[in-house]
Each structure stands twice: as structure tokens, then as C-alpha cells.
């Protein structure tokens, strides 16, 4: 699975009309993608639903860019695959 593609899908779902090419690992949620704190929770819900995992509020608070959410999800998936 390509995690970036999953994040793209989630962001396109929660921000309809967004220019998909803007969703790159370096993109910052607030400054580059207009994703505020509420939308970030909505994005996390979309990812939880799609990937059947749970993200903690505290983890989300620290996330500022697409790259970080990719890392977080990859770490979670690695734990799952290892057990």
C-alpha cells in the first residue's frame, strides 16, 4: 500500500475541490492545504475508516505536515504487520 496515496484520498474527501498536486509530503496542513484543526480530525477519521486503525488525539496535535501523518501511519502499520 502506498500511504501517500491513502492520505491524498483522505484529504480529497475532506477538502472537496482541492488541487491534488498540492498534496506532497512537504505540504503543511494549515499553510499549504487550508486544513485547520477541525479538518485535521476529519482527515484522521477518514484514514482510520479506510485503513482500520486508530490515531490518538495527542499524536494528531503534533502533526503539522503530510510527511508526519505518513510516518505515523507507516509506524502503526509496521507494528500491526509485525504482530
Amino acid at each position: 500500500m502506498n500511504v501517500l496515496d491513502e492520505v491524498k484520498k483522505a484529504i480529497c474527501k475532506i477538502q472537496p475541490g482541492i488541487d491534488e498536486s498540492k498534496i506532497v509530503p512537504e505540504a503543511r496542513f494549515k499553510e499549504d492545504l487550508e486544513i485547520d484543526s477541525l479538518s485535521k480530525v476529519e482527515m484522521a477519521l477518514a484514514l482510520e475508516e479506510a485503513l482500520d486503525l486508530t490515531l490518538q488525539d495527542a499524536e494528531l496535535n503534533d502533526i503539522k505536515a503530510v510527511k508526519q501523518v505518513i510516518e505515523l501511519i507507516e509506524a502503526r502499520l509496521n507494528v500491526r504487520n509485525a504482530t
Partner: peptide, 10 residues
Amino acid sequence: PKRISPFLIP
């Protein structure tokens, strides 16, 4: 409850 949208109240 963890799946409730943050946009529910607004």
C-alpha cells in the same frame, strides 16, 4: 464516540 465528526457541533 471516537468516530464522531468534529464538524457535528458547527
